[in-house]
């Protein structure tokens, strides 16, 4: 009798404190995730209520799908460039904006502004910049590089995506690097100056090693956002010209919701999950090791 009572009391506490979160979390994240694995093994087309279990044949189709792998490789290329450039620009900005420049609070705030605005709006703004303003400048000054819209050329459209992403995220990562730089003990840097270390040596021997945790966070965030980017892709290039800038998220979206091949779309989405999870876990694992060694 007592055990029943104490169990009921425990259950009541659980329901009050964790009930809503648990129920909503399970029904919005975990249930669709598991159901998704099942869907990827069926031939559901989105409309018909009767669909069959077809085993792994969707995955087979995906592995042979040239468009999927093109899109995937393009995404990897995009992620590599954005991770490198976002972090490079962000670190340089953070370094300069913690060196006691006049108006550094104002500058930090301005560089951060793109992060306040959603990817859709940013993509639309830059669509105008690339297709109108830069073309106008290119024609006026007869600069060959801008004389045609970047968005009409596959290679240049890809770089347009990278540029917009760097512009969008560098301010955010800059704040994280600033937080790291501000927390470096002043005595350490002063001691190095007294010992005769020049600027470059101070950066290499003291600042960079102490900044490893900030790098870990920023690389993690840029990696994740890079693989999942959709809004800017949609608003800036819409995958064009000729599907040449269709990153993986957009590819999955189109496969499922436009081509109505839900089973195949879900298989691609699941492969995306495996890859993103593997890459992030590897990154976190190596960074932890790196952090300890430094």
């Amino acid at each position: 009798m007592n055990t029943v009572k104490s169990f009921l009391k425990k259950a009541k506490t659980f329901l009050i404190f964790a009930g809503p979160t648990t129920f909503i979390f399970l029904s919005v994240v975990i249930l669709p995730f598991i159901f998704g694995i099942y869907l990827s093994l069926t031939n559901w087309d989105g409309i018909a209520s009767d669909y069959r279990f077809i085993g792994f044949s969707n995955y087979q189709t995906v592995f042979q799908d040239q468009f999927f792998w093109n899109s995937f490789l393009l995404t990897v290329k995009y992620v590599l460039y954005t991770v490198v450039f976002v972090n490079l620009v962000a670190f340089i900005l953070a370094y300069l904006l913690t060196s006691g420049v006049k108006g550094q609070k104002f500058l930090r705030a301005v560089f951060f502004v793109p992060n306040l605005i959603g990817g859709i709006i940013l993509g639309l703004i830059w669509h105008f910049v690339f297709s109108r303003a830069l073309v106008f400048i290119g024609k006026k000054l007869s600069l060959g590089i801008f004389s045609y819209s970047w968005l009409a050329n596959p290679q240049k459209a890809f770089w347009a995506l990278v540029i917009v992403s760097v512009w969008q995220y560098s301010g955010y990562m800059m704040l994280i690097y600033i937080a790291g730089l501000v927390n470096i003990p002043k005595e350490l840097v002063e001691a190095a100056i007294i010992d005769g270390a020049n600027g470059g040596q101070r950066v290499r021997k003291i600042i960079l090693p102490l900044m490893v945790p900030s790098f870990v966070v920023c690389i993690f965030l840029t990696l994740q956002r890079g693989f999942m980017v959709y809004d800017v892709n949609l608003a800036l290039t819409d995958g064009g010209p000729f599907r040449s800038t269709e990153l993986i998220s957009m590819h999955v979206y189109k496969k499922a919701f436009l081509a109505q091949e839900y089973g195949i779309g879900q298989s691609q989405a699941f492969i995306l999950f495996i890859i993103v999870a593997a890459i992030t876990l590897t990154q976190v694992y190596f960074s932890k090791k790196w952090e300890v060694e430094m």
Binding site: I30, P32, L39, W44, M228, S249, A256, A269, F273, A277
Partner: peptide, 21 residues
């Protein structure tokens, strides 16, 4: 643990079943 691990799931991996359910 389940919540922490679930942060690895990209939204794109659950959007199709989510819309279906």
């Amino acid at each position: 643990l389940l919540m922490v691990t679930s942060m690895l799931i990209p939204f794109q991996s659950i959007m199709i079943p989510l819309v279906r359910i």
